[in-house]
C-alpha cells in the first residue's frame, strides 16, 4: 500500500491560518489539554493522532468553541485566527461567530431529519439567505464539492435518512462546506463507516485540501498518513510531536511518537 506521499505545499511557503498558543483546557477540575502550541497551515490538511483519551477531539472542539455548550468547561491560552489576528477563545468573541467561520463534521453522520436540500441549506438559512436561486446554486456547489451531487441531484427533496452511511457523511461535509468555512474540522469522520465509504471520504478530503484548511482527528494512522500534510501526535493531553506528515511517519524525533506509529503502543 502506498502510504506516504509528498505534502502538497512545502512548509516554508505555507501561510499560517491559525496559531495555537499555550492552550490549556479544563473539564471542570480535570485538565484535558496541557500547554499546547501548534500551527495550522492554510489550505493544508493537519491530522491529530494519538491513543483514545489523549485529548485530540477535545483539542479539535476548541476550534469551534463546542465546549461552550456545556457548563464548567474552561479555556486558557489562545487560538489565533489569521488574517484577522483574532483570538477565537477570547470571552469577547461570540462562539456563534466562531462556528459560522469554522465548520465541523462529526464522528457519526448526523444529518437533520429533513430533506437533502434543507440539510445543506440550513447553514445558509441561518445566515439569512432567503432567495431560492441563491440557495439552489450554493447547495449544488456544496454537493459537488462533497462529491455527492451526481448521486442526489434528482432526489434533493428526499429525506437525508434514506441515504447510505457514507452518503450521509458526505452530506454532512456538504452542509459544512455550503457556508465557505475558513477551516473545516473533522472529528474521526470515518469511524462509523465501512471501508468503501471510508475510501470515498478520504478521497474527498484529499480533493478539498486546496480549497479549504482542514483539521482532522483520526485514530487510524494510515488515514493520517494518506490524507494529511502535517501531523500532530498527542498523548495524555500534551502535544508530543508536530511536523510534516512525511517527517513524523518516516523519522519521528520522539521515541513515544515512533512507538505509537509503529504500533508498539496505543
Amino acid at each position: 500500500m502506498q502510504i506516504f506521499k509528498p505534502a502538497s505545499g512545502s512548509s516554508a511557503t505555507a501561510i499560517q491560518k491559525s496559531v495555537v498558543n499555550k492552550l490549556n483546557f479544563y473539564y471542570g477540575g480535570y485538565q484535558a489539554l496541557k500547554n499546547i502550541d501548534m500551527v495550522v497551515h492554510e489550505k493544508q490538511v493537519t491530522a491529530l493522532i494519538g491513543p483514545s483519551g489523549c485529548g485530540k477531539s477535545t483539542f479539535l472542539r476548541c476550534f469551534n468553541r463546542m465546549h461552550d455548550l456545556y457548563p464548567h468547561n474552561r479555556y486558557e491560552g489562545e487560538i489565533i485566527l489569521h488574517p484577522d489576528n483574532e483570538n477565537i477563545l477570547s470571552p469577547e468573541v461570540d462562539p456563534i461567530e466562531v462556528r459560522m467561520r469554522i465548520s465541523m463534521v462529526f464522528q457519526k453522520p448526523n444529518p437533520f431529519p429533513k430533506s437533502i436540500f434543507e440539510n445543506v441549506a440550513y447553514g445558509l438559512r441561518i445566515r439569512g439567505v432567503k432567495r431560492r436561486s441563491i440557495l439552489e446554486e450554493r447547495v449544488e456547489n456544496a454537493l459537488r464539492n462533497a462529491a455527492l451531487w451526481g448521486e442526489v441531484k434528482n432526489r434533493l427533496g428526499d429525506l437525508a435518512f434514506n441515504l447510505s452511511g457514507g452518503q450521509q457523511q458526505r452530506l454532512c461535509i456538504a452542509r459544512a462546506l455550503a457556508t465557505d468555512p475558513e477551516i473545516l474540522l473533522f472529528d474521526e469522520p470515518t469511524s462509523a463507516l465501512d471501508p468503501i465509504a471510508t475510501a470515498s471520504i478520504e478521497e474527498l478530503i484529499s480533493d478539498l485540501r486546496n480549497k479549504v484548511t482542514i483539521l482532522i482527528v483520526t485514530h487510524n494512522m494510515q488515514q493520517a498518513a494518506r490524507v494529511s500534510d502535517y501531523t500532530a501526535y498527542m498523548y495524555m493531553g500534551e502535544l508530543i510531536e508536530f511536523g510534516a506528515t512525511d517527517t513524523i511517519f518516516i523519522k519521528p524525533k520522539n521515541k513515544q511518537t515512533e512507538d505509537y506509529i509503529t504500533g508498539r503502543f496505543g
Binding site: I96, E97, F106, K108, N110, F112, Y122, G123, I126, A176
Partner: peptide, 21 residues
C-alpha cells in the same frame, strides 16, 4: 440525540434557532 443538537450549533445556530428549527 446530542449529535443532532451539536450539528445545528456547529453551523452557528443560536439556542432559539436550534429549538425552533
Amino acid at each position: 440525540p446530542v449529535s443532532i443538537r451539536e450539528g445545528a450549533y456547529a453551523l452557528g445556530a443560536t439556542k432559539w434557532q436550534t429549538v425552533a428549527d
